[in-house]
Amino acid sequence: MLKDITLGQYFPGNSPLHRADPRMKLILTLVEITAVFLCKNMYSFILLIAFTAALVIMSRIPPRMVFRGLKPIIFIIAFTAIINIFWTKGDNLLFEFGFIKVYFEGVMFAVFMIIRIVCLLAGTSVVLTYTTSPIAITDGLEQLLAPLKKIKLPVHEFSMMMTIALRFIPTLIEETDRIMSAQKARGADFTSGSLIDRAKALVPVLIPLFVSAFRRADELAVAMECRCYRGGDGRTRMNVLRYSALDFVLLAVFALFCAAVLLINRFAPGFSL
């Protein structure tokens, strides 16, 4: 039940996007985000859709999964679309209904907005979250941000904290699940009653959960100290990240995509923002 919550969405596989270096994927995510906002023209939006679709196909993630990831933001998408349709003023009036006026520009704006949000989420999730394990993401982030150590930012410590937090999310979910089951077996009822009743019903879950979380943290700290962990100074890594040809090919493809978008924005005719 609780296991259905996907916090890390990682979907194991062996596509080019899975194999790429996490640092490069972080960079590519930034490029993708920039590109999405560069699109200003009908043709560039068509290119964006094609490019995102190509990414999804290349990642070999079932499109069903990608769409499932979009579900939580359907409301936001619908909300922005409606606002854009009714509040954008333009020259070409489509129809009028009392004080509501819908312009051609508004509809186009709404459509572009939907495309943007969907492509943004689908693109970044197949480039990064679906194809990279959370640990690899923090690893990549640490190394990308390594130059910041020069200005005394504790980059390693931050990434260690993130790694540990990510590492323990599934454990805590499992633990919550277990304690909930154990209390359910003793007749706890989490699903009926008033809101206050339900909140009260959670006490027998939260207390043991906190107790065990603190116990775990304590044990982990002792275990790390026993293995002489003393922060990032002088620490070497077991898996050294190396860029491969694949990474640069991907970078080139993304760069080409950006260039194409810019060119289309400048020279293609048709409606643009």
């Binding site: 277990r178 304690i179 209390q183 359910k184 077996a185 003793r186 007749g187 027998p204 043991p208 065990s212």
Partner: peptide, 18 residues
């Protein structure tokens, strides 16, 4: 049903809360 079929989980001591 749960009052009829009682289940003690593995390491049940972690469910104590009162």
């Amino acid at each position: 049903l749960r009052f009829k079929v009682g289940l003690v989980f593995q390491y049940p001591e972690y469910q104590l809360f009162e």
